[in-house]
Structure formats: structure tokens, C-alpha cells
Amino acid sequence: MSSTIESVPLPESIRLINHGPTVMVTAAHGGRGNVMTAAWTLPLDFDPPKVLAIIGANSFTRELINASGEFALNVPPQALVKAALGVGSESGRDVPDKFARHGLKTFAAQKIAAPLVEGCVAWLECRVIRDANTAQNEKDYDLLFAEVVGAQADTRVFSQGHWHFETAPDELRTIHHAGSSQFYAIGEAVKTA
């Protein structure tokens, strides 16, 4: 089953994270890129699509985001759980190239400078919203409000605005962090009709 990546219409893009997956956050500025894992991201609005990400003010990724004003949310599947744990367990200040250290390859985003992680099943390209309403929350609570400016997904698991985990191999199921080094893969669909 070969991978095909297709653009996702922006009003549907928040569906890529509305089920609460762990994400890899990528950022770049001044010739330096970084990747970290985050479990606290959520959709805020459909059109224009907005997301909220909680990223510590002292992290190297946050430093790059503050400088560039943009970041990407990469949704890793079960096949990348070890890399997700690894990049979330060390700082880009201590490890100059976390991508190489954890065997992650990247490709260019369509709308932002931050790289996208190959092997993920969805990608959201985000620009930080900075105004009087968001500035204090960003400072006090490490909340980053962002508009999604580009989105893509692997059609083996997401197409026509919906996830299709039931027809994809288990290694393509998204992962969900439950604390420490414990992750779970998304489960079976529940029929409602």
C-alpha cells in the first residue's frame, strides 16, 4: 500500500487533530530546525482554521517559533512512536540535529519554512496569531494560537474529510500519549448508525 499525500481543504484541516493525537512540532529559523513532541494541541475554529498548541516558553522549539512566527504540526503514526518519544525526551539545544539522531527525514512545507516529517499521516502548517488578545495568554500559559495556512494528509488513512483507520495497516494508526513513555494507538471505529 503506497503513500499518497494530498492537500486537505483548510476548513476540514482541524479534523486532522480533533481526535487528540500526539504530534511532532517542527520549527525553523536562521538556518536551524528542530522537532519536538507535544500532546497538548487542539482545534479552535473551522474557517479560518485555528489551533492551539502548548509549547514551553523555555524550549528550543518555542525559541524558533517566536523568531519565525510559524510551526508545523506533524501527526505521527504508530510506526514512528519510538522517534516521537525520542524527540520529545531531549532538547534541541543539547542535540543539534534531532532529525538525524532519530532517523527522521523531512520534506518542504508548502506555505511555511518549517520542515515536515516524512512518514507522518497528516501535516498542518501554522502561523502564530499575535495580537492583544493572545499576547498575555502566550506569556502566562505558554499557549500559542495559530491559523492553519496549509494542510496535507496521507490518503491511506485520511481522505474526503474523514479518517479511515479501519482500512489501513495498524502501523498507520495515530498515537496518543498517556504520560511518561506510555502511548496508545487509536482504536476501532464505533458505529453510530
Results as ranks from 00 to 15, higher is better:
residue 152 Q to D: 06
residue 107 F to W: 11
residue 18 N to Y: 11
residue 144 L to S: 10
residue 107 F to Q: 08
residue 59 S to L: 04
residue 167 T to S: 14
residue 21 P to N: 07
residue 113 A to P: 01
residue 163 W to H: 12
residue 54 I to R: 15
residue 21 P to E: 05
residue 121 V to K: 02
residue 140 D to E: 14
residue 23 V to Y: 00
residue 98 K to E: 01
residue 62 R to Q: 14
residue 114 A to R: 04
residue 152 Q to N: 07
residue 60 F to T: 03
residue 53 A to D: 03
residue 142 D to L: 09
residue 39 A to E: 08
residue 159 S to V: 03
residue 55 I to P: 04
residue 173 R to G: 09
residue 18 N to G: 05
residue 36 M to L: 12
residue 105 K to T: 12
residue 59 S to I: 00
residue 7 S to E: 15
residue 38 A to E: 02
residue 185 A to L: 06
residue 159 S to I: 01
residue 108 A to P: 08
residue 51 V to P: 04
residue 24 M to A: 04
residue 145 F to E: 11
residue 153 A to I: 04
residue 91 S to F: 04
residue 78 Q to W: 13
residue 103 G to E: 06
residue 174 T to N: 08
residue 52 L to R: 12
residue 85 L to R: 10
residue 35 V to I: 09
residue 87 V to E: 00
residue 74 N to K: 02
residue 170 D to R: 13
residue 57 A to V: 10
residue 193 A to N: 14
residue 117 V to R: 03
residue 51 V to F: 00
residue 93 R to F: 05
residue 188 E to M: 11
residue 140 D to R: 14
residue 155 T to K: 05
residue 159 S to C: 08
residue 117 V to A: 05
residue 119 G to W: 00
residue 186 I to H: 12
residue 24 M to D: 04
residue 58 N to R: 14
residue 32 R to Y: 07
residue 44 L to N: 08
residue 153 A to C: 07
residue 66 N to Y: 00
residue 135 A to T: 15
residue 184 Y to R: 15
residue 180 S to K: 10
residue 72 A to T: 11
residue 46 F to E: 13
residue 164 H to N: 09
residue 136 Q to L: 15
residue 167 T to E: 14
residue 132 A to M: 11
residue 148 V to K: 01
residue 143 L to G: 11
residue 89 S to E: 06
residue 182 Q to C: 05
residue 37 T to I: 03
residue 74 N to T: 02
residue 1 M to S: 13
residue 183 F to Q: 13
residue 57 A to P: 01
residue 89 S to D: 05
residue 160 Q to K: 13
residue 166 E to H: 13
residue 58 N to V: 10
residue 47 D to M: 09
residue 144 L to P: 05
residue 30 G to L: 07
residue 5 I to L: 13
residue 7 S to M: 10
residue 104 L to E: 09
residue 193 A to M: 10
residue 13 S to T: 03
residue 82 K to T: 12
residue 171 E to M: 04
residue 133 N to E: 15
residue 139 K to T: 13
residue 101 R to H: 08
residue 45 D to L: 09
residue 58 N to T: 14
residue 4 T to R: 12
residue 117 V to C: 07
residue 76 P to F: 03
residue 81 V to M: 12
residue 162 H to A: 15
residue 58 N to C: 06
residue 57 A to R: 13
residue 74 N to H: 02
residue 177 H to L: 13
residue 131 D to W: 03
residue 54 I to N: 13
residue 3 S to G: 01
residue 113 A to S: 14
residue 56 G to D: 13
residue 93 R to T: 06
residue 32 R to N: 11
residue 157 V to T: 11
residue 127 R to S: 08
residue 117 V to D: 05
residue 150 G to V: 03
residue 45 D to S: 14
residue 141 Y to G: 08
residue 32 R to F: 03
residue 50 K to G: 08
residue 28 A to D: 12
residue 49 P to F: 00
residue 6 E to F: 04
residue 110 Q to H: 12
